[in-house]
């Protein structure tokens, strides 16, 4: 009887998602990411910067056209580098250093 009453009440006033449930979900996601040993971001920004320098010698690219990420699945680590050059123009010819 009491349970039916609750159901009716929930129909009339739908319960808001409880904030503790939201907190738990957010923590799971952020901790899963941090425990995956993603301490590598310490060198990722430098790698990304150097890649931009190197690729930039050949085509004109912006900072946001290169994405570098490191993922770990079990024993395997995957360094993923995405460089988008669609619409990029060749870099101006540079004076030879010879």
């Amino acid at each position: 009887m009491r349970i039916h009453g609750m159901r009716l009440l929930n129909l009339v006033f739908p319960p808001r998602p409880k904030s503790a449930a939201i907190a738990k979900e957010r923590l799971k996601i952020v901790l899963a990411h941090e425990r995956a040993g993603s301490h590598a971001p310490d060198f990722l920004p430098r790698l990304q910067k150097e890649l931009i320098d190197v690729v930039g010698r050949y085509v004109e690219i912006r900072d946001d056209m290169i994405r570098v990420s490191l993922d770990k699945a079990g024993e395997t680590s995957l360094l993923e580098i995405n460089i988008e050059i669609e619409g990029a123009t060749p870099a101006p010819a540079r004076v030879s250093q010879a």
């Binding site: 957010r26 996601i29 952020v30 920004p45 430098r46 910067k49």
Partner: peptide, 18 residues
């Protein structure tokens, strides 16, 4: 509430990496 949007941080900027 922006924990999933962090890419670069304060130390990266101090070190000139971003």
């Amino acid at each position: 509430g922006c924990e999933r949007r962090v890419v670069f941080d304060f130390i990266n900027v101090i070190n000139g990496d971003a």
